[in-house]
């Protein structure tokens, strides 16, 4: 039971990561293969603030979200100069640089990481097991709500416009640079919160947890489920995160699965298994309508 709860908690955290990447890549069209860097920045911020500065979880959680949001806005600056495949390379580079900083700057604990991160407490009562899962699930619901609301606002429309055509977006009054930075900041902030939860759930953080392969994993969850939708990243994260954890023998091949998913989806269902007009989603909708 404890094992299943633990898998479900991971799935919730990764669903938030997938949804946050979806805002950047699905909504605003800025393809990033460095999302694990934001995950790591949130985790390290929260770990350092609690372990080294003695803060309690809740303010550290909020601070991790804010810090990662601000850093994310700055790390989005390359997107103002480069587009498409060049941006992909730039974000990959950012991921490597961030990990290197965690690893080689002793202030961040170096390769030994940070250990002894406490679980959150509420009114003197430590949140563990199902209660921590409830916290992670709550944060997932909040992220879902933010994603859904954002897509309905003028800002969401501006993001879609710049995804579809940057020149045309400028021509209707959208400051493309400003909205790209917004997208990076929001996406990073949400991922930073996921990082904080991860750090406090695991009790320790190490640089390699946030390496480039993790970015590939998050991207494959978004693409597998269906980029641009809400259901897609969540379902993608639950399947691709929970399944390899649950089926141990599959877990050994996790990175092969992530890579294979990306190749197969691009070839056969680029809109994802549950994307609009995908084979499965059309079937489900027909069944519901009947």
């Amino acid at each position: 039971m404890g094992y299943l709860i633990s898998i479900a908690t991971f799935a919730c955290i990764w669903a938030v990561l997938a949804l946050s990447l979806n805002i950047l890549t699905g909504y605003a069209g800025q393809v990033s293969l460095g999302h694990a860097a934001f995950f790591g920045i949130g985790a390290y911020a929260s770990a350092m603030l609690t372990v080294k500065a003695g803060w309690s979880f809740w303010p550290a959680f909020v601070a991790a979200i804010l810090i990662t949001g601000v850093v994310g806005g700055f790390l989005g600056l390359p997107s103002l100069r480069v587009r498409h495949d060049f941006l992909v390379l730039a974000t990959m580079g950012i991921n490597f640089v961030v990990i290197a900083i965690f690893k080689y700057v002793s202030f961040f604990g170096g390769a030994l990481g940070i250990i002894g991160i406490k679980k959150p407490a509420l009114f003197g009562w430590t949140l563990r097991g199902p209660w921590f899962l409830a916290l992670a699930a709550l944060y997932l619901v909040l992220t879902l709500w933010i994603s859904a609301y954002l897509s309905r606002t003028w800002a969401g429309l501006a993001l879609t416009a710049l995804r579809e055509d940057e020149d045309a977006a400028e021509a209707v009054g959208v400051s493309v640079p400003r909205f790209k930075i917004y997208a990076f900041a929001i996406s990073a902030a949400l991922a930073g919160g996921a990082g904080s939860l991860y750090a406090h759930f695991l009790g320790s953080v190490f640089p390699d947890h946030f390496a480039f392969v993790e970015s590939i994993g998050i991207m494959s969850m978004v693409v597998f489920g269906g980029i641009g939708t809400l259901r897609g990243p969540v379902v993608g994260a639950f399947i691709l995160k929970a399944l390899p954890e649950y089926l141990r023998f599959v877990g050994d091949y996790r990175y092969a699965i992530y890579g294979g998913v990306l190749v197969l989806m691009m070839l056969f269902q680029p809109q994802g298994i549950l994307g609009d007009n995908s084979w499965l989603w059309n079937k489900i909708r027909r069944r519901i309508n009947d």
Partner: peptide
């Protein structure tokens, strides 16, 4: 678009 209100109002 230039205002943060863009994040509050549904279009």
């Amino acid at each position: 678009y230039p205002s943060l209100q863009a994040f509050l109002h549904v279009y």
